[in-house]
Design a protein around this nucleic acid. Structure first.
Lengths: 180, 180
DNA sequence: ATATCTTTATTGAACGTTCAATCAATAAAA
DNA sequence: TTTTATTGATTGAACGTTCAATAAAGATAT
């Protein structure tokens, strides 16, 4: 991820990674099954970290839909996740996952998990179709904030991103009376 | 863009492009100054098309903030823009623009234009800070819907994407009384 | 504890492939 | 005849992978 941050995935060679990790070039192919394998392993790591962070915050949060949804938002804008290196890596994954079956599967599992988690919570206070739209919208908003954060030259303002997502959430929940 | 759609930017060689265009490989470097130059020219084309489409719709729309904002949304989800090839190309640009000064500038000009257009219209009915948040949120939502559309295996449902953006718009405008 | 043998881990140079760019040769246009 | 446009084989560089050689660790015997 540091190498991707420095030079971009296209310019990240096995040798560069090996130098940064203080190992020989050969050992990477040996343990990860080539560059492709290393990429997949890295993606699994990042997705796993994100999932854990979300789960942790959800467990610590209250049981109300709003609290759970806020926990999901918070987890997605966690400090660890929002470093430049991770954001760039994520974007590189997004781009390359469209042309590699293994990465695409990982990507879609993650996407669907976010969507269905959101949808489940919204369903607790909204009718079905409205809950789906709310989940789709919030998922897109989260990804969009990430994307714009990665592209902007400044660091992503995680605080502001969370607030914008909260606002969206409140707007959606305010339409119907929600029990907290 | 067809080549990127087929194989991804990483696997798109000059030769592949040349074959698809029925020209020799050499002529591409000659006219575009190498692969890099062709990439930039393509990006300019895509960004230009988007800008024109938005401008066209804004001119045809009414003058009210809501009508103008809807025109901007419509332009961003225009049929031409939402083909698989264009979406993939766009995502590839996003990823590679982080490591190439020329592409990054193009990218940021476009980002800022979208943001400031949105902000200007929101300012006509919202206080400054609220308008900024609304613009940031809507911009992120639009990009996020694009992104998820590109990543999903199905084609982007432009109709639904527009509706979600409209909903966000209405939610923001409903907070204060707006004159139409 | 020491020495010897066996297994596992790691290195890094060499290989073969791929690709962008070049440019002399050719074709088309003026 | 001159100028412009295009071709496509060639070149040189870059990269991922491989693998024989080396080092380290572990096991066994003395």
């Amino acid at each position: 991820m540091q190498a991707i941050d420095e030079a971009g995935l296209a310019n990240t060679t096995i040798l560069r990674i090996a130098n940064r990790a203080n190992v020989s070039a050969g050992i990477i192919s040996h343990y990860f099954g080539g560059k492709e394998g290393l990429l997949e392993a890295t993606m699994r790591q990042v997705l796993g970290d994100l999932g854990q962070e979300v789960a942790r915050r959800r467990a610590a949060a209250g049981g109300s839909p709003r609290a759970q949804l806020r926990a999901i938002i918070d987890g997605n804008f966690d400090r660890n996740q929002v470093s430049r290196a991770v954001m760039k890596t994520w974007l590189a994954f997004w781009a390359s996952s469209m042309h590699r079956g293994n990465l695409q599967r990982l990507q879609q599992v993650n996407d669907r998990r976010l969507y269905s988690n959101l949808c489940f919570q919204f369903r607790r206070c909204l009718p079905r179709d409205e809950a789906r739209d709310a989940a789709r919208g919030l998922a897109a908003l989260i990804d969009g904030l990430w994307l714009r954060g990665a592209l902007a030259s400044e660091t992503l303002d995680a605080e502001r991103a969370r607030r914008l997502a909260y606002d969206y959430l409140d707007g959606r929940l305010a339409r119907t009376e929600c029990l907290a």
